[in-house]
Computed example of a mutant assay.
Amino acid sequence: MADFATLDELKARLDWTLDADEERIATSALEDASDLARGYAGRDWEPSSSAPRLVRTLVLKACKRYMTNPQGLTQSRAGDETLGWNDTQGENAGTVYFTHDEQRMLAELGGRKNGLVSASITAWNGRIYRGPGYVPAAGSSKPFPLFADEVEPW
């Protein structure tokens, strides 16, 4: 599977020149972000150039975020060597990730829509009687007629 963005497109968004090791990391980040984008969208665009431009933009945004701060730091000091992390990114700290809003956009681009869903429900341990107008009666093996019908009035 091809990536949704190229290394040159990522380099254009970064404000420094990548060395060979950083290029290797950036290539892996592009692969990871493309795989995540496919997962959140719930589909693959084949060829990858047929994907909406916003998918490419979101992949590049996630990769730039990772390349700018690969350790996921929230605080850093040079004097006395202070580094800091917090739980706002959770398990995503130090990895390529999409924010909640980016995940929602990818899902919508893939055709997944949030909304209402209807689900059929039944009573626990209940039985469905096929006869018209009858319901189960507690303590009896015979169903109780709930209403009259034309065939069998009560």
Rank of each mutant, 00 (worst) to 15 (best):
G79V: 15
A33M: 06
D80C: 07
G90F: 02
I25P: 02
Y97I: 00
S120P: 10
L106P: 00
D44H: 08
A51F: 07
L73K: 11
A33F: 06
T27N: 12
V117W: 10
T122A: 13
G90A: 03
G111K: 06
I128Y: 15
G115S: 09
N92H: 14
D80M: 11
L58M: 07
D80Y: 13
L58S: 02
A37F: 08
T82V: 14
E150N: 05
L83A: 06
E9L: 12
T6F: 04
Y97W: 14
P143S: 11
S34D: 02
A37H: 06
G84Q: 07
L73A: 02
R127K: 13
K11C: 12
A12W: 01
A107L: 01
P145T: 04
V55T: 13
Q71T: 09
T6L: 04
A123T: 12
P70D: 00
K142M: 11
T82M: 11
L7H: 05
S76P: 00
P153E: 05
E91W: 06
C63N: 07
D149K: 07
T74P: 00
I25N: 04
E102H: 03
R53T: 09
D15H: 13
Y97V: 00
R77K: 10
E102N: 02
A26S: 12
T82F: 10
T88I: 07
A78H: 08
A5I: 04
S48A: 15
G111R: 10
L106W: 04
A37W: 06
E9R: 12
W124I: 13
E150R: 07
G79E: 15
V55C: 12
D44Y: 05
R104Y: 00
E108G: 03
R56E: 09
W16N: 05
Q103R: 10
F144G: 00
E81Y: 10
L73T: 02
I25T: 14
S140G: 00
G126F: 04
